[in-house]
């Protein structure tokens, strides 16, 4: 049985090791609005912040390009930092970049590697908790959106999405809809219909 819970709601009268919870007096409580699945012992936030993990792809904007390091705005509680010797070519302020998380250091700075500048296009900000649904299993959802809208799309786990070319308005609408309706069954069919792609074809 899955159920929606709010911050402070008790999930178990035993201590559980579960993300997005606190254990107080031996009892486990949610700290977020989320979907709690007791049998699978999982709590998935429906509203949540981004907690970076090594290897994740992020999108950001160059805030302060300097000689040795570049400071990246990730629209998150953490700053990104690129050590310039890892970069090829020139990065300048306000460039949109795609990069990979190497690590989160003690001061709340994320060391980024493999940066790539994304030229032109626009960014969309979505809730980081919705990124897995926007990507879909095996990235099938985002591929379908790219195909249906003829847009090049790059999705950062920090909740920034870069779009270029094709039908921007449709791509934006589709992504915003996934963000709002990710919890409602039949999402893939609704999105496929919206972008004019047959889901049958995807299943084969």
């Amino acid at each position: 049985m899955k159920k929606l819970v709010i911050p402070g709601e008790m999930l178990s009268d035993k201590p559980l090791r579960l993300d997005h919870t606190v254990v107080e007096n031996g009892k486990t409580c949610s700290t977020v609005i989320g979907l709690y699945d007791e049998s699978a012992s999982s709590l998935i936030p429906v509203e949540g912040l981004w907690y970076p993990r090594p290897g994740e792809k992020v999108i950001g904007i160059v805030e302060e390009a300097k000689l040795n390091t570049d400071l990246i705005n990730l629209n998150a509680p953490y700053k990104g930092l690129i050590i310039s010797k890892f970069t090829e070519g020139n990065i300048v302020n306000n460039d949109i970049i795609e990069a990979t998380v190497k690590e989160l250091d003690k001061t709340g700075t994320i060391i980024l590697i493999r940066p790539r500048v994304l030229y032109g296009g626009k960014l969309l900000a979505v809730k980081p908790s919705k990124v897995p649904r926007i990507l879909g299993k095996g990235e099938t959802m985002i591929k379908m959106i790219g195909e249906g809208t003829k847009s090049s799309i790059s999705v950062g786990t920090n909740g920034l999405i870069w779009l270029k070319g094709g039908d921007y308005d449709l791509a934006t609408n589709v992504i915003m809809r996934i963000q709002e309706e990710s919890h409602v069954p039949g999402l893939t069919e609704r999105i496929a219909k919206m972008v004019g792609v047959s889901t049958q074809q995807n299943r084969e």
Binding site: N73, N94, G120, G121, K122, K164
Partner: peptide, 10 residues
């Protein structure tokens, strides 16, 4: 959102 979301090119 604490950044500008579109580029001049866009």
């Amino acid at each position: 959102m604490n950044i500008s979301t579109i580029t001049e090119q866009y």
